[in-house]
Amino acid sequence: MLKVYGLFLVSGLAVGSLYALAGIGLVILRRSTGFLNFAYGALAAAAAMVAWQVADWGAWPPLSWFAALVAGVVLSVAYGRLVAPALAWREPAVKAVATLGYMLILLGVMGLIWDDELRKLSLPTDKIAVTLLGVRVTVTRLIALGVAVAAVIAMILYLDRSRMGLNMRALADDRDHAALLGIPIIKVETLAWGISGALAGGTGLLFGSLVRLEPTVITFMVIPATAAAIVGRLTSLPMTLLGGLFIGVIEAMLTLYKPLAPLRAMTPFVIAGLMILWMQRGTSLTFASKD
């Protein structure tokens, strides 16, 4: 029986690292620009489809992966430069709703370009695996976890140590003050959109390979990823990472408990809901907080 738990633990960590990875991309952008980007999943999906397309044209595989990252960056920065500035001083909820519009546009465009057929995105690392607690784990899954951890560490170091990181933090704390201080807002924000776009591109590649290469499936992965980000209160990168992993493990473990097995996909949303309630504890029933 212990072996079975081990199986599900490892499997859950593998899925959880995907939630975490996407959640981290959301939090990085949210922290530095105030945008909770619901189009994040659509960016990832577009990047994955671009990678498939480039590979389908017969390009050298690493070129197709690079194309995915470029697609993520371009699509993300395009929104960041063209649309986001017009909404810079609006409430966070309005900013988030606007990204829903971008999500719908990207979904529509992907549907027009790539009709529905069997596609596969395989990475060379899919074929190499190590065995952990009786579960074979492909290197691609290890990369997903590795990228998530690395992104957290790198971003923490970057925000702490570098001038640009300091600017980002200043911007996130108070946009008006940051502007007064002469911080190059546009430059800093563009960088944030770019970093988050690149992460979306990478996430899309991994999702396309590990989950399913289907635009709608990858696009709506943003919902469980948001759940992971909520566990990190939309601000904490380490908490988002842990939240994603925790959700993945619980979800996998529930498979073992038959009555709840069909409902296990609810795990991210239940955990996020409980987290929000816990964050609201102590505030009075009636008065709503600002956001």
Partner: peptide, 14 residues
């Protein structure tokens, strides 16, 4: 809409 096909497979295993 399940994303985590791994668990479905493991369920069969279990």
């Amino acid at each position: 809409t399940a994303v985590d096909l791994n668990s479905v497979y493991l369920q069969a295993l279990a």
